[in-house]
Design a protein around this nucleic acid. Structure first.
Lengths: 343, 343
DNA sequence: CTGAAAGCGCTTACAG
DNA sequence: CTGAAAGCGCTTACAG
């Protein structure tokens, strides 16, 4: 059985209050008494009972995190960043995954609230089109920060990249190297980031006077390697002369590259491909993938920082203005893209 | 402010005890009273205060997990398995990472114990050579299960694969396809699994009458992509006619393949390579990597199952016999290996 | 079937 | 400087 304050108090004949105050470093304790208490606590290997502390202070120094998927280069980088930053501030992190499902996401959010975590970080599932479960969290007065996959409609702090701008850059690059017929493998219809990436693609075409053709846009469902292969084949069947593709996510782009390799279509000679997110395996695939670098680790750190500020503000009963943090991205040119020579 | 039992009790003029018993489904409550209590609790959106429940029941329905690294295909798969299984049983998971450091591992273990988690799952850091911090956990009466990277010397439950056997199979396969001079990129000196993989490699050589040459064994430090490249180059500089390599981990094997590609050494024609773990990117690299499949998700589920049993046993004050679960692996043949034609 | 009481282990306002 | 007391919100053994 772990040592309690009471046991320390009895051992040296002082009161529990005094022991508590001494251990917490309060000033109004006789230095001699304090010394003895500290010594005894150490000898008895005293560790505060966190259950009791939680109950008294109404905080658990624990936050909850919901991601759509854990086995995922980007999200695992974010998780790492969150845990690292949380640890610095003495917080622990409970992690749950929604598996891109609205129902699960809702359930996980309830689990975390019932657990009375001090705050929640969430990246929204692809399957989510209603957002009342997030409203409840906010009404419930639990600090909430969304990152990467956010809901525009919900008023809370957010840490994101500028997906539209990044997608614009990616598409613009394809145009600049000479691509004339550029397809887009876009993410599912609901998530804000796949909408924004699509809009960035479309805007770039417009700005450079390339007619937008909705038939060149394929909507992914699983956002998987297999889907990349599938739509690469489909694209080749359905269209001639496509010379560039901007793909919503690296994993899918790598599927596409694999399919083209199998079909003996040369990347980048016959077709240039740009991915999104800069997964590690993009450096390893052949040809290596040109992509947009999305700073996962940093996003995790920033997301926790914002949440932490909100938790502190709440504790002090201060008003908190929701923050919106937009992180920089950049285009990383590798071997899946190549300037088209004029003939 | 969340509703409390007291508020419900006052509203309908019964005692707190009765409300508590009704909500917990105890039999000795008048059905009418019970009905009213349940209805009122629902109306008032009552959720038990988990801090109070923890304090009373002395359990938090939370476990701790320490992995060496989160951004890692194998470990993220294990994490996913643990969380999935834990959730089924109503447990939440706090995740920490040791970054392969002994100091950090020790610190994280203390954090989790101070938090009074109901149990701890851990995969040991490469930097760990002393194991007293684990002994403390056990003496402290906190259920502990090690998975994948374990300490032989510590008496606790373990969930592993048979690394020696798997490495033996990998090396044997290289021998069977005709390799005569087989190198090994082994993991760091401390972790049990890199020792076992090395021993499996050595045993296979012996059994098939290939002389063991310690100069053909390179010891990895970071177990990274870069190290794979580095040692592949070094191997070529230092030895002629090496026709096979068994590599401790896929990531390193992929680094080696990349280096060989750059040096215009043909894999598998000039040299066959077998990795270990079956990371997703092994299907994507060119040539795709022959490797040992290591079931991460399943390992996670099994690790939680064993821990759960131990937690239950402790709660009932039953004696618990530590379990050792050994999961199956299998060799997955891809394109980085190829039978050598007799000339 | 109901409720008063004790207690989990801590923190803190207050009296002395 | 010290300590008695109240209380966080719950559970449960016990009395009636």
């Amino acid at each position: 059985m772990p040592t309690t304050l009471k046991e320390i108090a009895e051992k040296i004949n002082v009161s529990v209050s005094t022991v508590s105050k001494a251990l917490k470093g309060y000033a109004d304790v006789n230095p001699e008494t304090k010394k003895l208490i500290l010594k005894t606590a150490k000898e008895m290997n005293y560790k505060p009972n966190s259950f009791a502390v939680n109950l008294r202070t109404k905080e658990s120094k624990t936050i909850g995190l919901i991601v759509p998927e854990i086995v995922h280069h980007f999200f695992s980088s974010v998780i790492k960043g969150i845990i690292a930053q949380a640890e610095k501030k003495g917080y622990l992190v409970i992690i749950l995954q929604s598996n891109e499902s609205y129902e699960l996401e809702k359930k996980q959010l309830e689990l975390l609230q019932n657990k009375r975590v001090d705050g929640i970080l969430v990246s929204i599932a692809n399957g989510t089109s209603k957002f009342d479960h997030f409203k409840e969290v906010i009404d419930n007065d639990t600090p909430l920060v969304m990152f990467d996959k956010i809901a525009k409609i919900i008023d809370c702090s957010k840490v994101i990249i500028d997906d539209r701008k990044a997608a614009y850059e990616a598409t613009k690059y394809l145009i600049e190297i000479g691509c004339k017929k550029i397809a887009h493998f876009r993410g599912p219809l609901l998530p804000q980031n796949s909408i924004d990436r699509f809009l960035g693609y479309k805007k770039a075409l417009e700005d450079f006077n390339i007619p937008y053709d909705s038939k060149l846009v394929y909507v992914l469902n699983d956002v998987s390697f297999e889907e990349g292969k599938y739509y690469a084949k489909k694209l080749v069947e359905e269209h001639k002369n496509v010379d560039g593709i901007f793909v919503n996510t690296d994993l899918v782009a790598i599927g596409a590259i694999t399919a083209f390799n199998e079909m003996n279509i040369k990347v980048p000679e016959d077709i240039s491909i740009v991915g999104f997110s800069n997964w590690f395996m993009s450096t390893v695939v052949s040809p290596s993938l040109t992509t947009i670098n999305q700073p996962g680790f940093k996003m995790g750190k920033e997301a926790f920082k914002v949440l932490y500020k909100e938790i502190k503000a709440k504790k002090k009963n201060e008003k908190f203005r929701y923050k919106k943090v937009v992180l920089d991205t950049d285009l990383i040119v590798r071997n899946s893209t190549k300037p088209i020579l004029k003939s």
